[in-house]
Amino acid sequence: MKPASFDYVRAASQEEAVETLARKGEDARIIAGGMSLVPMLNFRLTEPGTLIDISKIADMNYVRAGGEKVEIGASTRQATLERWPELSAKLPLLAAAIPYIGHYQTRARGTVCGSLAHADPSSELPLCLATLGGEVVLRSTDGERVLTAEEFQTGMLSTAKRADEIVAAARYPVARPGHGYAFTEMAQRRGDFAIVALAAVASGTRLRLGVGGVADKPMVHEWDMLEGGALDDALNEFAWDLGGYDDIHATARYRRELVRRLGRRLIEEAKSCRN
């Protein structure tokens, strides 16, 4: 399993990366950590003519907390975010979700923005971005666009990013007072792709549940506060509306059951950890 031939450009700055991408167009791909892209190259599922490496661009390697959002630069490793001292206080949902991403060994290389750009429907970071209502910053020689998570991810491995744009940063909303956050997933092995992944946010009056691994992108539903049987009914409705599928790992029926059962448990957990 060896990749097809490609030209390799190590970009020294964001400007260089964007200009090279503008010149090479659809034939080029950005590589940062390579944890999703290189397996696809090795399997020859994709054969770009040029790889533009942004992993060494120092000014894209940051985690920056603003008032309402935490911005994460394109070359920032998942492990860097995992070790960020303010993670549990500012982004408790991500503090709960990151240990589920791949393994210790892949988080050491894989980037946050790379996972968003790859847009796997079962991935944890796109699910958290969608559930929290975060944003993706795209940059090209034409300038900058900011898309909401919902606008950005359009389906299975596909996004609204144009071929001449790079994912320059991700913005995750900071935890709000009185809100509780919880994350869980079911996979066949530790670190494997989630069969179903769930993220929940509970405030005093509202509930929000994001589900990955069932539809072709993370799906989020919000309700007024529900309890008991009414909550079970709402989760059942949501589970059916997600339109799950049968595959080698699980049936659609099993996926619905996971949404119902884990969803219930997770919402109770989010309610109980409201600060």
Partner: peptide
């Protein structure tokens, strides 16, 4: 994980890294 090495002290899959990187 059989190919795991350290690159500048960071644990890395050598099969997901290009030599030129």
């Amino acid at each position: 994980g059989a190919c795991t090495v350290l690159i500048d002290g960071n644990v890395s899959r050598a099969c997901l890294t290009f030599a030129v990187q």
